[in-house]
Each structure stands twice: as structure tokens, then as C-alpha cells.
């Protein structure tokens, strides 16, 4: 896509682009480059001497059980949050779509958690599940479940999954509802004439037509779980207990900050970068429409 008519000149467009390019170079490319550079360096404890060590930092990373534990925690966390939030929001969106005129009313009541900061969402749920005085925690304990996310890794994982899902439902709901509303009514009618039951109609007509939305949301949800949930984990569990909720992003932060092992932290950053680039590449099919270059 191109404009038929444009202005001419070099100085003006350059000046208009300058702020964006300057910030992009200083705060995006420079740090990303440094992360890559550092991941191949070994620094001594004072950060004064560094030497090139090739892939040593990466090798060391994969020799440590903690890193595999973080990969496992991230995988469990992603799958749980992704599945739960997509399934629940699709279910709610289908109901809202049935409610016809009520749809926009329910939309208003369901989309606001998007605006709640992840850390705040975490704190709200922590309050409910806090072992000594949390309302839900007490209920669970009355039922004989020794609930304690501060000591039990699985409990901690459940807690952050709940908070992350709660926050993400609104986003998925919005896109699923829009997707459902864009399915032409004539298709539903045609399948009704073809004698499909409502449930069959959903699985054979609506769900396949919704698949681009679903696919898009899967990618977005994975990115969300990987990065945006940092606030939830940091505020609720600090990655604990015993690293049970330490995801890859949290580990980058934690290792870089407390451990001071910059080389290892940088190597982890680079691995994350590769993951994001892969995800974006998958998403590219959809962004392409907008890029069009």
C-alpha cells in the first residue's frame, strides 16, 4: 500500500522520525545488543574484567536443574492459564452472544479486569487465599484441605494461575465476542435448515469459523503469560516457595538482580528474545495484513 500523492523532501521526514528512532536505538537496540554481547562474556565478581567465553553461559544454564525447573514452571503456568482463560471466556462469550441485546451490558461488566494491573490482581487474590485470614483459604481449611501457598508449591501455582486467569478472561472474552458477532447469521440459519442441533452447530460451524480468533488469542495469551504476569508472581509468591512459581522471566530478573551473574542472566534474556521472536513470527501471518510492505 502506498499513497498516490506524497510530499517531497528528506529533512522534514528525518526530523519527524528522529525522536522515535533515537529512543528506539538507545533503549531497544543498544540494550538488546548488550544482552547478546554479555551472554558470551564471563565477568568477575567486581564486573571489572570480562572475557569472551562463547556459549559457556548457555551451557552452564542447561546444566543447572533450576533452569529446567523454571522451564517446567513456565510450561505448567502457560498451559493452565491459557486453557482456563480461553475456555472460560469462550464459554462466557457464547452465552453473551445468545443474550443478544444484553451482550453489550455483560461486555461492560466483564471487560474491566483488563485495566487492573497484574500486581494488583495478584494482591486481590492473595488476600482471598492468604492462609491465616483469607476467606477462601479458611473455607478450604474447614473442608480439610491444608491450604498454604506460602509453603506448598502447588498451592502457590494454583494461586498465581487463578489471578492470571481472572485478569486475562476479559481480553479473551472481548475478542471471542467480536468474533462470534461477526459470523453471519445466515450461516447459522443455513445449518439449522440442514438439521444441525445447536451443539453440533457450535462445533461444526461456529468453532471452525472462530479459529482465526482462537489462534490469535493463543499466541497473545502465551506472550501474556510469559511476560505480563511478572507482576503477579513478584507480588504474590516472589517465585516461591522453593522456586515453584519461578518462571523464566522471573528468573532473569532474580538472577540478574540478586545473583549478580550478568552473563547467565543475559543468556537467559537472549533465550527469551528468541522465544518472543518465534512467537511473533507465528503471529506474523496476522500482522502481515497490517504491515503490507
Amino acid at each position: 500500500m502506498e499513497k498516490r500523492t506524497v510530499f517531497s523532501g528528506y529533512a522534514i521526514p528525518l526530523a519527524l522520525l528522529a525522536p522515535q528512532l533515537l529512543i528506539t536505538v538507545i533503549f531497544f537496540y543498544l540494550p538488546a545488543g548488550q544482552a547478546i554481547w554479555q551472554s558470551f562474556q564471563l565477568e568477575d565478581a567486581f564486573g571489572t574484567v570480562s572475557q569472551f567465553v562463547g556459549f559457556e553461559n548457555y551451557k552452564l544454564l542447561f546444566e543447572r536443574p533450576e533452569y529446567f525447573k523454571a522451564i517446567g514452571a513456565t510450561a505448567v503456568f502457560s498451559v493452565l492459564v491459557g486453557t482456563l482463560s480461553l475456555a472460560l471466556s469462550l464459554f462466557l462469550a457464547v452465552q453473551a452472544n445468545k443474550a443478544l441485546k444484553g451482550a453489550s451490558f455483560y461486555k461492560t461488566l466483564l471487560i474491566w479486569p483488563y485495566a487492573v494491573a497484574p500486581a494488583i490482581a495478584g494482591v486481590l487474590w492473595l488476600f482471598l487465599f492468604q492462609p491465616s485470614m483469607g476467606m477462601v483459604a479458611r473455607l478450604l481449611q474447614q473442608w480439610g484441605i491444608p491450604w498454604d501457598p506460602l509453603l506448598n508449591g502447588n498451592h502457590a501455582m494454583i494461586l498465581v494461575v487463578l489471578a492470571a486467569t481472572w485478569k486475562q478472561i476479559s481480553y479473551n472474552f472481548l475478542f471471542f465476542l467480536a468474533g462470534l458477532q461477526s459470523i453471519p447469521h445466515s450461516l447459522i440459519e443455513a445449518s439449522a435448515i440442514d438439521g444441525a442441533t445447536p451443539l453440533r452447530r457450535f462445533w461444526t460451524i461456529i468453532f471452525p469459523l472462530l479459529s482465526p480468533t482462537t489462534f490469535y488469542l493463543i499466541v497473545v495469551n502465551v506472550v501474556y503469560v510469559f511476560f505480563d504476569t511478572f507482576g503477579i508472581i513478584d507480588a504474590v509468591t516472589h517465585g516461591g516457595p522453593a522456586g515453584a512459581t519461578t518462571t523464566l522471566v522471573f528468573k532473569v530478573y532474580n538472577d540478574g538482580r540478586s545473583g549478580g551473574d550478568l552473563g547467565s542472566s543475559a543468556a537467559q534474556s537472549v533465550i527469551l528474545m528468541v522465544i518472543v521472536i518465534a512467537l511473533t513470527a507465528i503471529q506474523f501471518r496476522y500482522i502481515e495484513r497490517k504491515v503490507n510492505y
Binding site: 528506539t24 538507545i26 533503549f27 531497544f28 543498544l30 540494550p31 538488546a32 548488550q34 544482552a35 554479555q38 506472550v223 511476560f227 511478572f230 522471566v249 532473569v252 530478573y253 540478574g256 550478568l262 542472566s265 543475559a266 534474556s269 527469551l272 528474545m273 518472543v276 521472536i277 511473533t280 500482522i287
Partner: peptide, 16 residues
């Protein structure tokens, strides 16, 4: 830059 969320380049950015 869409592919470089702040989380993956956090310490170098902090240093700058």
C-alpha cells in the same frame, strides 16, 4: 521493536 518487550532486555536497559 514489537519483538523486544522490556522484560527481555531489562538489565542492559537499566544500566543505560
Amino acid at each position: 521493536t514489537l519483538m523486544l518487550p522490556v522484560e527481555v532486555r531489562i538489565f542492559p536497559t537499566y544500566k543505560i
